[in-house]
Amino acid sequence: MPDETKSNPASECARVEPKPAPDACASPESAVAAKEEEIRSLVDRLKRLQAEFENYRKRILRDLAAVEERTSDREILAVLPLYDNLERAFSVYAEDANVEAFVAGVERIFGQFAQILDQRGVRRIPTVGERFDPSLHEALLSIHSPQERNLILEEFSPGYVRGERTLQPSKVSVSQGPTQVEKEER
């Protein structure tokens, strides 16, 4: 069984001196053989590099999926205390139906939630009275109003940004400006 595992195929003269030195590689046959050997070795290296790239790509995809999983684990861990605290609030309320105490408790949990969002740089998008901007807002309704066209009239559900990115646009109604009749009256 031949045990050659790593080959250094190109002959020394071909490797050291790309343009064959006349004295070292005198015979044309050996020069050709050396070149062939060099080509073979280069093709092998190319294939290995390419295979490595493919495997790298596969690994990156696997790693990305793993990172995503861990990131979502972290986020779940961040909100689990809220879940637990809400559960506590309900069980306390079940024992003693004190509405005021319950609301006060839930308010604290809400504050805790706001803090978690704040720590992550999540900011609520301002809406009513602002100018509609599709990079921040999504229009659900467009209505005639005395307000200037494209001003936001109402917020249906809040939107959030984190840094420069819009996590979720606010869902809003937008002024179409005055009605046709009003316009013509002007």
Binding site: F132, H137, E138, A139, L140, S142, V174, Q176
Partner: peptide
């Protein structure tokens, strides 16, 4: 948009109702 700015994709879809 009103100002003539061109939007393509997600942003265009978000403002479709105000600007049909």
């Amino acid at each position: 948009t009103d100002g003539g700015e061109r939007l393509v994709g997600r942003l265009a879809r978000r403002q479709a109702i105000t600007n049909p």
